[in-house]
Each structure stands twice: as C-alpha cells, then as structure tokens.
Design a protein around this nucleic acid. Structure first.
Length: 950
RNA sequence: GCCGAAGUGGCGGAACUGGUAGACGCGCUGGAUUCAAAAUCCAGUUUCCUCGGAAGUGCGGGUUCGAUUCCCGCCUUCGGUACCA
C-alpha cells in the first residue's frame, strides 16, 4: 500500500481536534514544561516558509517532552495590535479590527495545516479587550509605583508620598528624573500640581517632554527600531526630531537587574552580549563645571575624570537647555544658523555626515582642577539623549575630541604618557598621568579613583554609573493600540482608572486614519474623550510592545476575568522553560518583557525573577530576489532592459536593478535563473509601463512579442529577507500539497542548524520524501500488504534501534534537529537492509519519530492496534547494553595518518592492544620495512591507535 | 570603527569534551526493471597522479603522538550597531 499523506494527515488532525489530544490542564501530577513560540503578527501576506522553522522546532521539543511524561504547555496566539496592522488596514481600506480578524483566521488555518500540537483553547490575541484589560491594568500599576534603589524593588507611590511628607526627598534613593532636593516642609508647601509633577518624576510610568522620532506622513511617533536611515521603516517617509509630551516607562530603574540577571538564564552568549551592550553600563564620574560670569553649571558624565587637566573646551548638544541661556550676543546669529543647519538635515544626512562640525557659543566654563577658562562649543557629535548631553573635551586622549580640536584650532594638552604601552590607541585607558598636578605619575586606573575622590572633596562631582539604556517612549499618536487607562482633571493631572472600570475599550470609528500635526485619531472623538465629570481621556495609545510584554503569563490562565493570571496557575507554570523566536527581537521585546516580569515579581504576583529560562534563536529562512537590469539612459517610451550577463559586460553602463516576481523566473534560485519568453511576457503583464520595452539577451532580443522561442534572459539572484515587498515570498501550501505536512516539517529541520540563516530551496526535499516512504514501506510486504512479525528482535536489530534512540534523544536535547533527521534515515536504511518488520523494533521507532512526523506515525500506531495516541505513548528507553560489541575496529594511524584498521576485543587492555599493534603488517610496513623504528604507540581505548615512527 | 557569528566536496551540511574529515541528503555517473518514460532498486562519487601513494576543512604560523576543533596574526562573508563621552 502506497504512502499517501493527503489521505492520512487531515484525518488525524480532525481526530486530534475532536479528541482534544493536545489540551493541557493546569491540574496535573506530572512535572510541568512550558514551550513557547514568539507569537506572530498576522500580516496580510499570510504565512511563508520562513515562519514555521521555529514553530516546527519548538513543536518537536514540546512533543518530545510530552512523551517523556511532562505536562507540556504549548500555546499560540497573535500579536495583533500595532503599527503594521494599522498600515495594512490603511492600504486596504478595511477597518483594522476586520482585517486583523481575517488575517488571524488565515494564520490559524495555515498553522493548523502544519500539525502543531498547540492547545488552541488557550489562544489569545492582544487586541481582545478581555486581554488588554490586563495590559491596561499593568500600565496603571506601573503608574502607581516607584523604584526604590535600597530595597531594589518597586514600591507603591503612596509609600513615597509618606516619606516626602516625613523627610523630603534628601534621604530617598529611588530611580527618578527629578532635579533638586526638597525638605518635608517644602513638600507640604507645594501646591497640588507641583506635588503631582514631583511624584510623576518618580513613577515607573510617567509623562515627560522628550524628543521623539516624528513622522509627519504617518502622523505618529516611531520607535528607534522603526526608523531606518532617517526614514520610516514602513512607507519610507522622512522622520524628524520633535519635542512632545509623551508617556514613558522607567525601564532604566531596572538596568542593573536586567544586566546582572542575565547570568542566571540559559541564553546564548551572543544574545546576552547584545543585551549587555544595549544596557551599556559604564562607570565614571559626574562633574559640574562652573560657567564664567554666570550662575549656571554644566553637568557632564565622563569615564575619564583622570584627564580633567587636559580639558581645553566643552561641547554641548545643539539641543541642550543651556545653549540659549549661555550664547553671547555676538555669537547668537552663528549659533542659530548652526542649529538651523543641524535641524534642517534629515537624520540620514546627519548620520552620513563624516565632517566635523560645531560652533562656539561665546561663553566659557571653568575647569575645576586648573581654574582656567575653556570655551564652550556646540556640536552635533554630542548626543542630547546620552549622558547629560554635554561633554568635557580632552583632545589629547579622545579621538573625536582630537578631530574636533584639530579642525577648529583648539588647544591640546597632553596628559597621559603612553610610552609604556606602545600598542595602545588614543582611546585606551592606560598610561601614566602627567601635566596633572596631584595625579602626576599615577597609572590611569589609580588616577580615576583619585580624581573622583578629589571631585567629591571639592563638592563638584561624584562617582557615577551611566547607562546607554533609555526610558521607553510608550505613547503612539495612533488608533490601533490599547487606549491608556488615564484621565486628566481640570488641572491637567493624570488619574489612572481602577481595575473594575477596565477594560477601557478602544472606541469604534471609521475615522482611524492618522492626523497631521501630532493629533491622535482618538482626539477627534469628542464623545469619548470628554467625560461627564469634566475629565478628559488620554488620546494616545500604547505601542505594539505593550501587549507582547506579558502574553506568556496569560497563556497560563487565559480565561481568567479576575486577574491577569491566577496565582494557582502562575505558581504551577512558573516561567517559560523554552522560548523560541527570531533574533530580530533580541533587544526590544525581550528587554521589555523581562522588565514587566520583574515588576510583577516585585509585586509578588509572579514567583520567578526572569520570564524565559532558555532561549533559542532560529535563523531566518531567506528568499532569493531576482533582478533584471534597466538601462537608466534609455528613453521613457522605449526602455531597454538587459540580462544579467550583458549588464556585467557593460561595466560602464548605468543600470538600475529591477526586481522580478519570482513566479516568472525559470530555474528560480539557481545561478542560471532566467526569464523565458513566457516569463518576459508575464513581467510585462505585471509591469504594464514596460510593455514597449526591449529585452536584450545574449541569444537575441525581445520586443513587442517578437523574439526567438528559446530566448534566455539571465537574472541576477541575490539572497535576502523574504518579504512581500521583494516579491520573493514562498508560501508553504504548494510544498505541503505535493509532499505532505510531515515531509515539509522534516525537510525544514533537515536544511541545517536551526539557528543558522539559510536561503529557501526545495532541492533536497526528495530525500526526506523517500525516507518517509521507506519508513512506511517497512510495515508492508512485496505485495503491499500489511505485514508485521511478532518475533523477538536480533542483536543487530536492537543495536540499530538503540543507536537511533541515543542519537535522536541527544540531538533533540541540543536542538540539533538536522542530525536527528539523518539519524532516522540511517536507522531506516539499516532496518531495510535487514528486512526487519518486527513489531518490537518498529513500534519503538514509531514513537521516536512521532515528534517529527506526527501524522504518519499516528496512522501507523493505529494500524499497529495500539490504544490511544502515539503522542501520549511512553518514550523509548535507551539501553547501552545493546550497543556493546565483542570487538571494536580500531583505525591504525602512523604519525597521525590513517594507514589501516585492526579489530581488537572490546575488553582488551591498552597494553594488549599496543603489543598486538606492533605485530600488524601495516605497522611493520611503515616502520622496519621503511627503515624506521617505532618510537611510541598511543592507544585511546575504544577510539584509535597511533604509532609514532621515525 | 566596534560587537557577534561563520568560512569543510558540484550543492545543503556531518564530525560528541583534540582522536578514522566529508555522516545523511541532493546532484551526477553506471547498472537493473520497463516497449519507453516516470517511479523504484543496486553500485560508484573530495582532488591529483605513475594505482602505490600524495595533497586536502579561507590564508600564514604555533602547540600536540595527533588539529575542522586549541593559541597567535591575516583575509573574506553574513548579522547587529554606531560620533555612546
């Protein structure tokens, strides 16, 4: 009987659904295991072959754990709010709620077709009010807390109010953005608004004015990672810096814990390094410089306080608050011109700017160690958001300062003698301090300590730890997101809504398009915004990252209306044991999720300090993008296209690379990919503006339907991200229809290591398909009749089986699924050779294979007459005894080069083997017969023998 | 520039903690079956020559009885990031 996946697979998927095979209970005696995929954003393009890679891997692992007696939580849901959803809705003219719902349906269908063992009863989506009720609640809780640096945890803001009333803020060690100190009396004397503003500077969710990436075209603020090269990632519109009052989350309060707790989780070193660099902790000093003839002080952060004697000028960011105050009359025009020049530049130009620019503002600061006056400049190389937005410049010991000083002819005082460290570069923190008064003769690290001590004594600074990490901008002037559960009273003070009043449902409207000039779409809905009690609602919405920062907790208890997650549920499931997803989320999502989790942990609502115990990043499956070349100088009404080989020959030609839809290309993905005559016609039909174009190839030219039949327009193939906009999306449906889901799953695993990026290519899929047919064939005789032997297995058969059990188990544990597939192939090839059809062997092999090919193994399990599902069977037990051999074949190496093999008893001693090896013909041949002597024999038991001759 | 990852047959890739380099699969070659083809099955397949060897895991060194694996110095590719004080 032939193996026909089409008949088997749907049948079993229906069966599993009806039986609730993958339903998981929170009430179990089994140990728990939580396997999670990063939930997808349901885009309009549907699922492509890249999506399932990680899902297949995690599904195999989940099934493997289930077979090993774990109660496995393996859920799936959708990240359905956010900018892309709204963009898609804008493109199609369909309401975001409708399009998102349709897309989710499509994704659910496609995911179901892949045979994943998700418990769909726990399905969630972030735009569901039942879900975002709790997103809003967590936000409200963040608003209601501050971070106490002594307790190293979040505490209710009411505690802080008590402290302020009792002793002001002088003793308080808390994460804050408040400038200055006040006493209890001063606190009590403050009016309501000032008190509220003060508390705001301590809250974990707070409002402040900040510079944001403003995109006028999209009418919204964009996150840094939504901006690429100064233009918006979606749409490619210009982005400018704009000051706006926004909601922020004080993630910096958790910087140290986010950094140090990386040590306790099982993530790859490279990913931990990325997070460490993002947090960017640096130790140094915060120093205050007096300004000559002014009461103002300039605060700088420096990692090199030891070089303070070398400070010959200061640089402020052009946007720094003091610029306006300190610029002298004579310099005003020049400074204004410079700032205008910087602001007028798009981000892309500013980044491309390699030239050193700056302007003197006319004022001077006093170097506190030398008491000399140094000029104050502004320069775009000083960033407003990093450190204090101001630097002390040490041109002798900092490369950028050096370039700046050289360009503008500023003084350079050499303060570090690096002659002892000839390989050190200008920026390296080594050397002996000179020209620096009390620090002269000290090594750099000692001088840093001495400088900090001195600054503290003088009252002009102190040791300071600075982070690159910045607080998260949390507001979007958008429609498709969670509304903030915030109302403003007549004084403009923010009040958060109580849990019983949540969710605050996103009001329905057809007018969801972004508004120009910074107004949120919700601001137009006055009925909703203006409340009967005179309060007004916040009209910004939350960013997409809100919903994804805690969804992993909701799966534990998805239908709970009383809490974001029940305490019983979270105490049972604890945390995610295995999290699988793409490395593009290495920073933003994983950082915010860790932050929220830690906050909830501080509140005693989750038992664990970290959400994701182990993390595996799957590599991206790339697509091949195919191009032809357009001659830019050809006239508009007679465009000239040339094939890739011609473009290469005409190296001086001026060509634009035009992407071609991969559906038109013959030999897609190979170096010989080309457009046939039919392909060119499809291209013209797709891009009608080119219908009069000529297509030049090395075997003739196509124009207006005329060309040789065998015309061969070579295309240029480039590997890149699979994306709708690059016309190279490959949908899995065709492959699944032809080969079946089990084959598709195994083939994706067989492609290579899971964490490695690789281009999609179906070249090798026949090999996997053959394997499944042969596995199936093991159960049938020559006449294609079911034929199974009940005989006891032989030693050799048991060895084949247990070799596979050992290899597959070991490789699943280390996420090496490609080698698992080859182990299965080896096993089935061997069993076939022995014509083994014994139940005792094949039953165990079927269980072993079940996580990889869930459908065909279930069918076989059923035909074997076994009860229940193969996916609830007991995992095969490995027995080392079956692998034991009486004798072992040793490679015999002469001077490290293999020259032959010899068999020795498996319990022969080292000395026995050495003695026997001396007598081997092959050894004699390479020693005495070659005029050489045996110097030494190395025997590694069970491994090899190496004879050293000379 | 910095950080991270990786360079192995015609191709995707194996090789556990330094121990037979090229598992497994694709492709290719030859054969069987067939009127023929597809499918299937069997055998071969790193390169080079004098058929006994020689060379060989990006390049150049080193450590070792033995290196794809460890160390030093380069080159290339991919990913991330950027005037980060």
């Amino acid at each position: 009987m032939d193996y026909t996946p089409g008949n088997i697979e749907q049948k079993w998927r229906d069966h599993w659904k009806a039986e609730g095979t993958y339903k998981v209970s929170n009430d179990s005696d089994k140990p728990k295991y939580y396997v999670l995929d990063m939930f997808p954003y349901p885009s309009g393009a549907g699922l492509h072959v890249g999506h399932p890679l990680g899902y297949i891997a995690s599904d195999i692992y989940a099934r493997y754990k289930r077979l090993n007696g774990f109660n496995v939580l393996h859920p799936m849901g959708f990240d359905a709010f956010g900018l892309p959803a709204e963009e898609y809705a804008l493109q199609t003219g369909i309401h975001p709620a409708t399009s998102t719902k349709d897309n989710m349906e499509r994704y659910r269908e496609q995911l179901s077709a892949l045979g994943f063992s998700f418990d769909w009863d726990r399905d969630l989506y972030t735009c569901d009010p039942k879900y975002y009720k709790w997103t809003q609640w967590i936000f409200a809780e963040l608003f209601g807390h501050y971070y106490d640096q002594t307790a190293k945890k979040a505490l209710p803001i009411s505690e802080l109010e008590k402290i302020f009333a009792a002793s002001g803020n002088k003793q308080v060690k808390a994460a804050n953005s408040y400038k200055g100190k006040f006493t209890a009396e001063e606190w009590k004397a403050m009016d309501k608004v000032t008190q509220a503003d003060t508390l705001m500077a301590y809250r974990l969710a707070y409002r402040k004015v900040g510079y944001v990436n403003w995109c006028e075209e999209l009418g919204t603020v964009l996150a840094n990672d939504q901006v690429k090269d100064g233009i918006s990632e979606r749409g490619g519109y210009p982005v400018v810096q704009k000051a706006m009052k926004q909601w922020y989350l004080r993630i910096t309060a958790y910087a140290d814990r986010l950094l140090y707790d990386l040590d306790e989780i099982d993530w790859s070193d490279s990913l931990k390094t990325i997070q460490r660099n993002w947090i960017g902790r640096s130790e140094g000093a915060s120093l205050f410089f007096d300004v000559k003839d002014s009461d103002e002080k300039i605060e700088v952060f420096t990692t090199r306080p030891d070089t303070t004697f070398g400070v010959t000028y200061m640089v402020l960011a052009p946007e720094h608050d003091l610029v306006a105050k300190l610029t002298t009359e004579g310099q005003k025009q020049k400074v204004a011109d410079y700032i205008a020049k910087v602001n007028a530049k798009s981000e892309v130009e500013r980044m491309a700017e390699k030239e050193v620019t700056g302007e003197f503002i006319g004022a001077y600061a006093i170097n506190p160690f030398t008491n000399t006056a140094v000029p104050i400049w502004i320069g775009e190389y000083v960033l407003k958001d990093y450190g204090t937005g101001a630097i002390m410049a040490v041109p002798s010991d900092d490369e950028r300062d050096n370039r700046f000083a050289t360009k503008f002819g500023l003084e350079i005082i050499d303060v570090v003698d690096k002659s002892k460290y000839p390989s050190a570069t200008l920026n390296d923190k080594v050397g002996i301090i000179k020209n620096s008064g009390f620090m002269n003769g000290m090594e750099v690290p000692d001088a840093i300590t001495a400088a900090c001590k001195k600054a503290e004594e003088m009252g002009i600074g102190e040791m300071h730890i600075n982070y690159k990490l910045r607080d998260a901008n949390f507001g979007r002037q958008r429609y498709w997101g969670e509304p903030f559960p915030v109302m403003y009273d007549a004084d403009g003070l923010a009040h958060v809504m109580k849990v019983d009043d949540l969710p605050l449902v996103l009001p329905d409207t057809e007018d969801f398009k972004p508004a120009k000039g910074g107004r949120s779409p919700l601001a137009r809905m006055e009925d909703w915004t203006n409340l009967p009690n005179g309060m007004t609602r916040e009209t910004d919405v939350m960013p997409a990252v809100a919903g994804s920062s805690w969804y992993f907790l909701r799966y534990m208890d998805p239908h709970n209306d009383e809490a974001f997650v029940g305490q019983d549920a979270v105490n049972y499931w604890q945390d995610v044991d295995l999290y699988v997803g793409g490395s593009e989320h290495a920073v933003a999502h994983l950082m915010y999720a860790r932050f929220w989790h830690k906050f909830l942990h501080d509140k005693g609502l989750v038992p664990t300090n970290e959400p994701f115990k182990k993390l595996v990043n799957q590599g991206m499956i790339q697509g091949v993008i195919e191009f032809i070349f357009l001659d830019k100088n050809s006239p508009q009404d007679a465009r000239r296209f040339v094939s890739a080989d011609i473009a290469e020959k005409e190296a001086d030609g001026d060509f634009a690379k035009i992407p071609v839809h991969v559906d038109f290309v013959s030999n897609y993905g190979s170096p010989k990919s080309y457009l046939s005559k039919e392909g060119i016609e499809k291209f013209i039909d797709w891009r009608k503006e080119y219908k009069n174009a000529t297509f030049e190839t090395s075997n003739g030219t196509y124009q207006n339907g005329e060309s040789a039949a065998d015309i061969n327009m070579l295309t240029l193939s480039e590997v890149g991200k699979m994306s709708k906009s690059k016309f190279n999306v490959i949908n899995p449906d065709a492959v699944i229809n032809r080969y079946g889901t089990d084959c598709f799953r195994m083939y994706e695993m067989f492609l290579g290591p899971i964490e490695q990026a690789k281009p999609w290519d179906t070249k090798g899929i026949d090999g996997v398909s053959k394997f499944l047919k042969r596995y199936w064939g093991l159960f049938f005789d020559k006449n294609e009749k079911w034929s199974l032997s009940e005989e006891a297995p032989t030693k050799d058969e048991l060895k084949i089986l247990h070799t596979a059990i050992k290899k597959v188990t070991h490789d699943i544990e280390r996420f090496s699924f490609n080698t698992c597939v080859s182990a299965f192939m080896v096993c089935s090839n061997d069993l076939r050779k022995w014509r083994c059809n014994k139940r005792a062997i094949l039953k165990e092999m079927t269980i072993l294979l079940a996580p990889f090919a869930p459908h065909v193994t279930e069918e076989i399990w059923n035909r074997l007459g076994e009860s229940g599902s193969v996916h609830h069977a007991a995992y095969p037990v490995f027995d080392e005894a079956h692998l034991k051999e009486d004798s072992i074949e040793y490679p015999i190496s002469i001077n490290g080069k293999k020259r032959g093999v010899a068999e020795f008893s498996s319990d022969a001693s080292k000395a026995d083997i050495e003695a026997a090896a001396r007598e081997l013909a092959v050894v004699k041949k390479w020693s005495v017969e070659d005029g050489k002597q045996i110097r030494k024999i190395i025997v590694v038991p069970g491994r090899m023998v190496n004879v050293v001759v000379g």
